[in-house]
Amino acid sequence: MTSLGILAAEMTNTEVWVTNSFFLAIAAVSILAALKMVTTDNVVHAALYLLIVLAAVAAVYVILGAEFAAATQILVYIGAIMVLLLFGVMLTRAQIGSETDLDHDQKWIGALISVVLAAVMGYSLWEAFSDAKLPDNRVPQGTEAVADSIFGIYIVPFEAISVLLLAALIGAVVVARRD
């Protein structure tokens, strides 16, 4: 049975059908938002489109049962990183309206590379994982499990990350300091 066939068979199951539809909607929204983000001629709009993508990705995490990652995505990305980016836009005195020269002249190079990249990746993914299905009985990987894991076997990377954040903080201050 081809994978499309499996998909068709699965569509009879209501729960799967709902989830899949939900996913497709999210995927469509995020891809459209992402496309708009890289093509829009308004920096502030680009930031808002990125916001949509990030929210959509958080929703994808929820579908995958990664609740804590979804919550962190919203808190850190939408709460902090987006604000940072908007500050960046503001401090570099971007126009609030449209701008004309946000892109390079030779957009086709970027387009070519990303299309080829997409083709290569799509082909290899199709080859490698066309039959791979997420387990039906998968349990959501809750916050407790994440906590056990981070403060268990991943304690050293965790500490390293915290040192990295500190270093980045200091580095950012040093680099951007007016002196």
């Binding site: 899949n20 891809i31 992402a34 890289v38 946000l102 390079h104 970027g110 993914l125």
Partner: peptide, 24 residues
């Protein structure tokens, strides 16, 4: 649910990101 659904989404977003990096 297929694994590839998510991987394709990720690949498309990735390529859009690459496009953005290269053209902006």
């Amino acid at each position: 649910m297929f694994l590839n659904q998510f991987l394709f989404l990720a690949a498309i977003l990735f390529c859009i990101g690459v496009y953005g990096v290269l053209t902006r």
